[in-house]
Design a protein around this nucleic acid. Sequence first.
DNA 1: CCGGGATATGCTCAAAATGAGCATTTACCC
DNA 2: GGGTAAATGCTCATTTTGAGCATATCCCGG
Lengths: 314, 314
Amino acid sequence: MTEPEPIASAPMVGLAAVILAATLDEPRVLTVPVAGQGAGRAEGLPAGPLEPAHPTLERGLRAWVERQTGQSLGYVEQLYTFGDRNRRPGGEDGGRHALSVAYLALVREARPAADSAWQSWYRYFPYEDWRAGRPPSLDALAARLEAWAAAAASPEEGRRRLDRIGLTFGAAGSGWNEERVLERYELLFEAGLVPEAGAPDALAGQAMAFDHRRMLATALGRLRGKIKYRPVVFELMPPAFTLGQLQRVVEALSGVLLHKQNFRRLVAQQGLVEETEAVTAETGGRPARLMRFRREVLLERPAPGLRLPSGRAG
Amino acid sequence: MTEPEPIASAPMVGLAAVILAATLDEPRVLTVPVAGQGAGRAEGLPAGPLEPAHPTLERGLRAWVERQTGQSLGYVEQLYTFGDRNRRPGGEDGGRHALSVAYLALVREARPAADSAWQSWYRYFPYEDWRAGRPPSLDALAARLEAWAAAAASPEEGRRRLDRIGLTFGAAGSGWNEERVLERYELLFEAGLVPEAGAPDALAGQAMAFDHRRMLATALGRLRGKIKYRPVVFELMPPAFTLGQLQRVVEALSGVLLHKQNFRRLVAQQGLVEETEAVTAETGGRPARLMRFRREVLLERPAPGLRLPSGRAG
DNA sequence: CCGGGATATGCTCAAAATGAGCATTTACCC
DNA sequence: GGGTAAATGCTCATTTTGAGCATATCCCGG
């Protein structure tokens, strides 16, 4: 495991993992402490350089994650290769490229290991959680964004900024699109409202090391989109679960509340689950039947996901 | 542009572009000749190594494409980073990793430049074109696939193979999913039915250099999915076009025919286009009104695409 | 033992979106 | 002037959504 002598122009390739889980109705991401980088330690994603011993990128990623967190991964998909910006410490030209191939992993269990910790992902994106209604911090953020638009060099640029704000954050309360996590983060970044870009407070969420928060935003957007057309939520569920638990996990991921009866109708008629014998005691209320994921749907035609209706409450 | 001395373990990072266009109702991909690699020259995608002078990955890609083909790119999105398999000539361990960051580009004009050439992409995937009904080569391919399934080491493995065949190629005529281009290619690859994997003929399509056909398959699948939820087709259209032309391009991309009246209703009610003054002479038939893409939809709420109905004909 | 609180489940209904056709218009060609 | 080829306009039966109302069952406190 000796590091070879770097040469000036060979790119450095890193692997990074956004590992997501959902426990107790809260969506989580697995973080590790990152040394230094300014004051003390920051939170970061499990990551490490691609090594010659790694047979493939994905195997290398799994190795790094197990080494750093003890977590073994099930569902893994490639997310994006970062390297386009904010990754060139050496200036505008010359220097080495630093790429990072990021992966999205979904896991069921949340056993904390070593230094790693599970954090609610709304710690990093508080304004993405609309389950309790419009997040209060959005008003302050919107005000700062508008100030940023007003401070544009030209009126046209200001108008473009306003358009983007409306597009990503929803114009006039209508039209919040939960999938645009990355676009919102990038807008906040450009506007200098995130700590990584110099904001004095964490109104726009807790910072992460390097560009890891951008990776997390990419992962959330991707997952929020994907649950609608692929049955990936079940990667986060235990073997048996109630429809209520399933709904609360979907709501936790997407950040919006759903109409209960319609949600269960959707799940039922898609044939995504089947009943088991058992029921749960749960908290108060009538006991719910435990369901299990019908793996066969993966072999059936389009293998649908869970379209999110727009309903606000149950 | 001198190549630095490679060191044993530093990964090599390449950039590759899948550049797509649609002219005359035929979907095209821009190819360049690739020297050697066995007998004579093969077709490949524009590609080149990431260089220190490249400010970003995407800018590097654009530079390579312009240098090799003279084509300048408009819409560009990152596709996938390949490196997981069939890219390690040096054996199972040791040696350098060779990654390739592939991009998808959509262009309007198709001016052929230098050695590059536009090819119909169904040259590489003939079985993906269902516009004239079920492609005849599919019968022969299906027979070979079934033979491959029958030749599995165990009955369970054979059943798994049959499941995959049904899932990707559609079971019993029903359920062809035009988006599963990559899964179909990978299945054919595993079954040894493509030239790259040793097939004696080109029944499953023309080969490309390296793993470029895998990249192309990835791009087609991505594009076929994306036109359904983002208005990306218009990147391929001229400034003014008729609804008939638009439909024929969508059909060319997706490989299936659509119900004409429903298609135009969809486009109209989504507000994706607006009328211009002009009409066309066209071929026979009543002249059609020329339309233009309403760029404003990109600023409106969800910015929808063109859902493909299942209808078979017009 | 009874009523209230909290869910889980079952069903209904109107509105909107889909899938398939039928019928008309308006060119060009012979 | 009739025939052919699209482009357009409309209709209609089904499905799919979005929203509620009503019941069924548990636990708990009194």
